[in-house]
Structure formats: C-alpha cells, structure tokens
Design a protein around this nucleic acid. Sequence first.
DNA 1: CGGTGCTTTGAAGCCTATCAACAAAAGTGG
DNA 2: CCACTTTTGTTGATAGGCTTCAAAGCACCG
Lengths: 255, 255
Amino acid sequence: MSHQNAQLEAADQPQSVAGGAAPLAGLETRLQHFAKRDIGEALQPFVRGQRVIKRDQPAWAERGDLAHIFVIESGWAYKFDMMHDGRRHIADFFGPGAICNWSRLSRFEEQDDILFKAGARLTLLDTTALDEHLRENAALASAFKRHELARTMRTTQRIRTFISLPAMERMLVLLLDLADELGTIAPAPSWITIPFAQSEVADMLGLTPVHVSRVLKKLVDNGVLERDGHEIRFVDRATVARDLAYRPFFKSRAG
Amino acid sequence: MSHQNAQLEAADQPQSVAGGAAPLAGLETRLQHFAKRDIGEALQPFVRGQRVIKRDQPAWAERGDLAHIFVIESGWAYKFDMMHDGRRHIADFFGPGAICNWSRLSRFEEQDDILFKAGARLTLLDTTALDEHLRENAALASAFKRHELARTMRTTQRIRTFISLPAMERMLVLLLDLADELGTIAPAPSWITIPFAQSEVADMLGLTPVHVSRVLKKLVDNGVLERDGHEIRFVDRATVARDLAYRPFFKSRAG
DNA sequence: CGGTGCTTTGAAGCCTATCAACAAAAGTGG
DNA sequence: CCACTTTTGTTGATAGGCTTCAAAGCACCG
C-alpha cells in the first residue's frame, strides 16, 4: 500500500508528458459540447501537475490521495467499493477527457475509491482554486454541471439494464457506454479496445468472470460482435443500440 | 388516460383532509434532521392544495401533472419508467414525509413518471415560489439538499445490492429501506405493511412476481421474517442489517 | 525459460424464469 | 349484502441462465 503512494508522488513530472496533445484538451472538448460560449483554455490556470500510471493503482479516498481533481488525458479509471461479502462493485468508469472525482468539488457525497488503469495519463487540478473560479463564472460552472449530469443520466440508464436484464444485454449496454465515452472527444473508432480485465467487467455487470467470457463468446457466435483479443467491434452498432433503446448522452451532443 | 387526470383535478379539496396532522408536519420533521437551526413551519406559505388518491394513479411527467412539488402526507408512491422490452423498472419509492419530485425543483434531470398508490394523501407546493425562497434562505436550502442527498446515497446502496447479489439479499435490503423510510418521521413499527404489490416489488428488484412470492416464503421458512399477508416483521433486524452491512441514511440521523 | 495472472472450457448444481393451474383477495354491480 | 369479475398471490413442473470448481491454454514479464 505504501509503495503505491510512493509511485504516485514519484510520477510528478514537469508540465508536459509524452503524448503530444496539450493538457486538458480532451476535457475542454467535452465541456464545449455542454457550453453555450467558447470556453477556450479556461482551465489551464488550475493545472498542478501530471502523472503517468505505470501499473493499475488505487487512490484511496480516505488517505487524501483525492485532494486534487483528477482529469484523464488518456487511458481509463473506475470507481469501486467493497461489499460486505468481499465482492468488489464497480459503479462507474472514466475514459479520456473525463473528470474522475467531480463529486469532491461539488457535492459532499460519499467518496468511492478510484482505480487508475495502467497506462493512464492524468492531469491534476487545484480543487479549491477551481471551485472559487466556478463560483464567479456561472457559464463555465453550468457547462461542468451539465457535463456531469450527462454522466449521471448515462449511469442511470446502465443501472436499469444491469438490474432488470440478462447478461447479454448488460454486456452490450456496457460496450455501448464504452463507445459513448470514447466518442466524446473524437469520433469513436469502430474497433474498440476493452480497457478492463474480464474480472473487472464482471464486477460492473454483477456477473462472474467465467460468465463474462462465455457471454462475449456467444455474442461473437451470434454475429453481434467481431473480436480479436481485447479488441471488439459491433457488426451493426446502430441496430444493437436501437433494439436496446440505448441513448447516448455524450456523443450525440457534439456541436 | 383522460379520466385519470379528471380524478386528480376532482380531488382538489379545502385545506385540511381527514387524518389529523398538520400538512407538511412529516416533511418538516424529516428536514429538521438535516438542518442546523429550527425550521419550524417554514414551508406552510407554499402549500397550494391537498389531494387524496383513491386508486393507484400515475402522474405523467410529460403532461404537466408534475408542475407542483408533491409531498406525501401518508401513503406511498414510486418513480418508474418503461424499458424497451415492455418491462417496467421502478427506480425509487417515497413514503410519508417524502418529496416525490425534488428533481423538478433543483436539477434538470430526466423526469421519470410517478405512480401514487391508492390511499396516499398529498400536499402540493408551489414550485417556483419555493424555488425563490430557497435561493434567499441558504440554511433551508441546505437542509433540502442534504435530505435529498441522503436519498441518493440510500438508492446507491440499494442499487449495488440489486446488481450484484441474489434475490434474498435484494429483498432484505428493500425491506430495510422501507423500514428506514418509515422510521424517518416516527419510530418505525416492528410490523411493517409492504405497501406494494408483489409485481411492483418484482419490478424494483429485477425479478419476477412468482419469484418474489417464493423468496418471501423462504425468508419466513428460514426464520428471518414473520409474516401475515402484507404485514412483515424482522425477527432480528439488527442482525440482518449487520450481516448485509446495511447503512440507514435517514433514520439514524434523528437528533 | 519458468513464473504469474488472465482467459477459456467442461461438468455439475443452484438460482431464477416461464407456463399453467388454482386459491385468495379485492373491486363491481345489482 | 351477495354473486360476479378482476386482480393478486401461491404452488408445481420444467427449462434456461448463471455460478462454482477444476483444469488447461495463453500471454506477458522478469
């Protein structure tokens, strides 16, 4: 546990990290979809550093690791908590351009733990400075709020499926959500890399890893998906989305 | 559909309805748990009428039936929506003292439909007047916010169970939530009347009505519950709650 | 090259849905 | 208040979905 923290500290680097794009470009693109005016590079003043995650690494809510706002430049993260029977429940996931811990800024919700997947590149923002800025800048604050609301609504849609429908539908909705998250800052590629292990997918869907493997196989056998390892492709995404009455909350708002 | 609306109108009555307690006493009791100062009868000026629901009756979100804030004096209601396969999903429920459609006031969320159960008595509040009042009265607004946040957190806890755990645990958590909701404005009775049909419980748990019946029977056979029709009692609620790591979000805050 | 962790596959058993019939309860109309 | 209809809840039999356990294949990494 202590070496994990050491790793977080050690990754504190000078402003730019290999990768090219300016920090926060992804987030700004996302927010722009929910803003009425141009937000430009309004967030640059709040950058406090960047980090590269070498191995899968949790940030424990209680230990102050989440004192900053974490924005994902590339890669993935997810929010999880442990249940009474020892199982892990994964409640939401975050892709490029996402804010991992918005609730720290706006609400005083219970804070789940966050796990950053290996390879993720993060930008850290100053929580209190950003908070003050948003208090005075209603337009920007509104964009943040709408952006987070879209996430909430997408989560609500997913949860409904996970509670009521069988494994195949659950899996498809999860994959559509992944595509939605990816398509937010750039057109989603038709081949998507599932960024999670099957045991993690299982903890999202409320299934076992074994069954996740079988469900994926069945979807390929049925001609719904094509697959090459962790890469998958919908043979006909539009039809799948229509059959499930799936509603994209991020992608379709591009302006 | 049109006769349902007519019924809502027709039930508009003079200020007091059979039942004794002053309107909003339940809600004010609830809010008091989340307020730092005494809130007294701060909400009385916003009352715009009362209604008694004779038969189970939906208020359709799209038709403006939800222009007011609905507060439950006694009885129950729930939030539901229809899924692509024709199944009904019930996302949350509301007991005595609850606000059924807070989101109408504070957020611009997607609005689910609400169904009021037969026998429910409602108080209607003026949405815009209350909204303005809360803008100027931060303390009261904060109590509302914390109160709704408690609901959100309870829902999050329930959802986690419904996604990941089998039917018996789901049922127990639902019953504990019912007790929590009931115990908010007065000590919860040890015998609880399940206010919903088993088909409604099924749509909450993501099960079939048949299985709901069997699960209840099994819980009685295992000595976890006692039961007399729609009345149930936990033989040992504290132990059940502990085993499930169940956290009450309303009741335990009584001050 | 041999770990180590992730994925796949098979067999067996439990959990839940479906279908159908019936019982019980609640609403309806005379 | 009674007979009638409709809804709701119970029970059994059967089938399908998902988990568990165990073993083997595969990929990555030191």
